[in-house]
Design a binder for these strands. Structure first.
Lengths: 151, 151
DNA sequence: CTAAATGCAAACAGTTTGCAGCTGC
DNA sequence: GCAGCTGCAAACTGTTTGCATTTAG
């Protein structure tokens, strides 16, 4: 969050009230979210925020390296907050509820960049995407996560 | 190729001339391709083939487990022929020329399904996507692959 | 006061779908 | 001959963009 502010300040960009709200919402997310989700949640604080602003803000946060993009189950762009990882990210994408859960995977980059290098490429972003079904749904008929009692 | 024929036969579907052409084209591809690429190439054999048929055929080949989907650099759906791999696939996606190159990565699934399992999910598809830049382009100013002297 | 940010509506791109006619079996 | 396939054009969906207006610094 402070990093986002810093990023904007450095580039001579403005910290507006809308951006503040979006940032607060973004950085309090445990899972990945798509633009629509974020709009929903941000509008609870300011009902006028528009989708385009959401997209624009997500772009800059991504450029700032504070978010990574993941493809959701329905091909939507999803975003998740990056921790300390450099350029590699792992996510589980649930086929049942569509939820996208970040996974710790500290050595992914180390492990996987080698082979790519050997084929004549320099890896820039590595992402592991695991599409999966929810065990709980399988057992109980409902998936706790699908009711989005989140945050 | 024979597998595709078999798949259709089993399901009571037809082997048409259009499908034959599309299959030939698909299964002679060294790299991943998107619908447009495939249309291009298939039309060299039959100038009337339509995009919708391409999409529809790609879908069934994917259902048949003969193709996997990868996200291209421009967010297009790309497809690559699966070898013997089960449910895991690795690709390098070149940021420079957009080409998508399949990577051998025999143990990916073994290595990566564990952690997902522990979080309460059963992995169904695992895909490793490495977005990279082309070393050659970096050195020489042109990327051999970008002129698509392929196949 | 000026450059940047916003909301809105319109534009876009890739993909999917409905339908009338054609084709394999 | 009937189920399934095809091409076309139209519909869709998520995302991006142009523009007139507002706002931070």
């Amino acid at each position: 969050m402070e990093q986002a502010v810093a990023y904007w300040k450095v580039r001579g960009l403005k910290m507006t009230s809308v951006r503040k709200i979006i940032c607060q919402t973004v950085f309090s997310s445990a899972e990945a979210f798509d633009a629509e989700d974020l709009l929903q949640r941000a509008r609870q604080k300011d009902g006028l925020i528009s989708l385009s602003t959401i997209y624009r803000t997500l772009s800059t946060l991504q450029e700032a390296g504070l978010l990574v993009e993941v493809e959701g189950i329905d091909r939507k762009k999803c975003f998740s907050v990056v921790g300390t990882q450099t350029s590699a990210a792992s996510h589980v994408v649930c086929q049942d509820c569509g939820q996208v859960i970040p996974l710790e995977n500290p050595c992914l980059s180390l492990r996987e960049s080698g082979p790519a290098h050997q084929t004549g490429f320099s890896p820039k972003k590595i992402s592991l995407r695991i599409e999966a079904t929810c065990d709980e749904l399988e057992r109980c008929g409902t998936c706790v996560r699908s009711n989005k009692t989140k945050e």
